[in-house]
């Protein structure tokens, strides 16, 4: 029998990733809906997401899952704006923060000292949302502003 390990592995990996980002997308809908309702919103137009490259979330897969997860919710047809954040480490030798050019090498780009002191790059958070809020007099029939 010929065994093609990559054939099944790639499929499985892709499926798992999509599933993971889909559940992240559902969590986003939950968080955003709570905040939007509390603010009296009737619709969410866009969501701004801060996504660190070490967050473990793949941007493309999340964007794919977002559409499915937002259907029939306050977020339906909203735009997902992803702000990707590179890794920033603190280098004790330089006594400064520096942006890592590659996450395959956690060394200070200036002096090459290894550092695992991550100051940015694990973010997976909603920064802000753009919402539609009815005016105060909306829905109060027969009680126009005087």
């Amino acid at each position: 029998m010929i065994y093609l390990p990559w054939a099944s592995t790639i499929n499985q990996q892709q499926r798992k990733q999509t599933m993971h980002e889909l559940s992240i997308a559902y969590s986003m809908v939950e968080t955003v809906t709570q905040s939007a309702l509390a603010a009296g919103a009737t619709r969410v137009l866009s969501v701004r997401l801060r996504l660190g490259v070490l967050s473990g979330v793949v941007r493309g897969a999340l964007e794919f899952g977002y559409e499915a997860a937002t259907a029939d919710t306050l977020l339906a047809d909203s735009t997902l704006v992803v702000v990707e954040l590179p890794v920033r480490i603190y280098c004790a030798v330089c006594d400064a923060e520096a942006e890592l050019p590659s996450i395959q090498n956690f060394c200070c780009p200036h002096c090459n000292t290894p550092s695992g002191d991550v100051r940015q790059g694990r973010e997976l958070e909603i920064e802000s949302i753009e919402i539609d809020v009815p005016d105060a007099e909306d829905g109060k029939n027969g009680n126009p502003r005087t």
Binding site: I24, S27, M28, E30, T31, V32, S35, A36, A39, A41, T42, L45, L49, L124, E125, I126, E127, S128, I129, E130, I131, D132, V133, P134, D135, D138
Partner: peptide, 16 residues
Amino acid sequence: METRVLEIRKGILNKN
């Protein structure tokens, strides 16, 4: 209807 931006600053996996 008014459109406005709401700052949230909430982690998506806050609950977990």
